[in-house]
Every structure is written in C-alpha cells, then in structure tokens.
Amino acid sequence: MQLFNTVMAHAITWVPRALVQKISRRYIAGESLDDAVGRIRQLNSLGFKVTIDVLGETVSSIQQTENTADEYRRVLNAIQDHGLKASISVKPTALGLLLDTQHCEQLLGKIVTIAERHQTLVCMDMEDVSCTQKEIDLFANLASGHTNISLALQAYLQRTYQDLDSLLLTRSSLRICKGIYLEDRSHLVDKAWNDRSEINPHFMNHIARCFEMGTFVGVATHDIALIDQVIELARSRDIDKTMFEFQMLLGVCEPLQCKLLGMGFSVRIYVPYGKDWYAYSMRRMKENPQIAGYILQALMSR
C-alpha cells in the first residue's frame, strides 16, 4: 500500500486540472464562504467541530495580505452569525510573514482580537522550516496577550523537541501533526523522508509531553496505529477527553472520523475553501502520499 501511495503521489502531477478540480470537491468545501458555511453546517449537525482555512499562502503584495485578512474577518463574522461550532486556521505567509513581518503581526493580531471577542479559537499553522522560527516568535508575541491562539508543531522536525519544551511552559494549546512540507533532510528526524511511520514515535513523545503538562492538544493524524496509541495512552494516564481532540481533513477517512465521534471523542474537521484550490490539492497530494492514495482510490471506485 505504501508503494501504491508513493506512485500515486508522483503520478498525480499528470492528472488534468479539470479532473483534479472534480476530485478536490470532496476535500475542499468550495470557492466561496457560502460554500464553506453550508458544508460546516452539515458537519456540525453530525457532531463534528470544524477548523476553517482560507486557501492561499503565496502572496506577493501587501494588498494581497490585506485581502486575506479581510476574508478571515468575514469568516469570523459568519461563525458568529450562523452559530457555527468552528475555529479558524491561519498561515502567516498568507498574511505576509515573508514580505513584512511587522505588518503580518499587526494583521494577525487584529484577527485574533476579533476572534477573541467572538470567543473563537485561532490556530496558527506551521509551514516549511524556513518559517519555523519566525512563526514561533510571532506566536510568542501574540500569545502573551491572547488566550485564544494555538500553534501547530510538526513531529518530523528534530527541533520540535526543543520548541515543545519552551511552548509547554506557556500553557498554550498546541496542535501536533506529522508535517507535510518537503524539507532539507538535515532538519528531519531520522528516515522521515523515506517512511512516514518513522515519525510515529516522535509524534507520540510530543503527545505524551502535552498530556504530562496538562496542555490541550489537537491530535492531527489519519494514521490508525497512531490514533490507537493515543487512545491507549490517554486511558492509561486517565486523561480527560476534554484535554485533547482528533483533527482530520475534510473527506479523508470519513468512517474513522465517525467511529471516533461515536466513541465519545471530540473530532474536528479541517475545512478549506477558496479559489486557490488547485495549489492546495496538488501540495496535499504530492507531499502526503497517503492522501494521494486515498484520493485516487476513491476516483477509481467511482
């Protein structure tokens, strides 16, 4: 299966754009906020919480960053107006982290402030390793004045052990994922670029540290073996179910999502929307062979 997924991840480049769009409809809520609201309502009605992501992380002008910030304000208003059980996920590069760090912090600060007023959570996503320290510094600045912001950490980076040690002292909520960006191998945990299962022990170490420190943690994975280990660890340490949640992508492993929900666990679905669907779809499929396998298997079964 792993070989199949890897082959599919490489082959996906040759899939026509129109076909990628057709496939992506299961994994992306649509191009508009209205599309996303409709999808979120369905998920909420089933018992799922949601994290909303506005697609588009490559910006080349300050005006583009302003437009992205305006869209997030619209999202926050929609969450409030429709009573959605939803938080938001923000990529700092979409707000100009690599263009003007100070301006990015101002924009994100305004978003977090509005979200705080609406009692909505904001997760700051982690991007490629060239952004890691900048994003941790940005998070530290904002978390010092706000309690509704959390940070994603990538288990496949060696530095995450040290980053986690300092972040746990702040008692801020965290999100642990394996990581999907293609990196310089010198930054990665051993063999992580060859076999993603090699990341699992590191992932579990980070989850265990969050449990130990009483920090709320989002467990972001579709790996069944990992999920089973997290459940067993939580039970063995008598960790209350309110101290963690499982986070999964829209349209991926839906039976597993429902199973976890039925077991009484909190499950949050990552719901992306926007016009930049093609870049998102290609990145997800190329950089995570498992997802590419899911997508193409679903296509062949239709």
Rank of each mutant, 00 (worst) to 15 (best):
S45V: 08
Q158R: 10
Q158F: 06
R159A: 09
V20I: 13
L142A: 05
H103F: 15
S266D: 15
K275R: 11
G56E: 02
L153C: 08
H202P: 01
R117F: 08
T221W: 04
N77H: 15
I114Y: 07
T13D: 12
C210H: 04
T221I: 02
G96Y: 07
R302A: 06
S32T: 15
H202K: 08
C131F: 04
E127F: 02
C123R: 12
I227M: 09
A192F: 01
R185A: 10
Y156N: 09
I224E: 11
R25E: 10
L19H: 00
E135W: 03
L174G: 05
D128T: 03
L174P: 00
Y27W: 08
G109I: 07
L84E: 00
Y278E: 13
C253D: 12
H202A: 09
L168Q: 09
E245K: 05
V15N: 01
D238K: 13
Q229W: 01
T221Q: 00
H82C: 00
S89A: 05
Q64G: 06
I79E: 03
R302T: 11
M248Y: 01
K259P: 01
I136H: 01
V271P: 10
N5G: 00
A292K: 04
V122L: 12
D195A: 07
E57D: 05
D238E: 13
Q229P: 04
Q106N: 14
I40G: 04
F4V: 09
L153K: 01
P16W: 07
L167I: 12
W193S: 12
G109V: 09
D53T: 10
I88W: 03
I207K: 02
I149K: 01
L76N: 07
T113Q: 14
I62M: 12
V37K: 06
Q21H: 09
R26N: 04
D81I: 07
Q158M: 10
G214F: 10
G109Y: 06
T51W: 11
D81R: 13
L249T: 02
H202F: 07
V219P: 00
G251V: 09
I23M: 12
A69G: 08
E254M: 02
C258E: 15
C258L: 15
R17N: 08
I136P: 00
V189H: 00
T170D: 00
V20L: 12
G293W: 03
A298V: 04
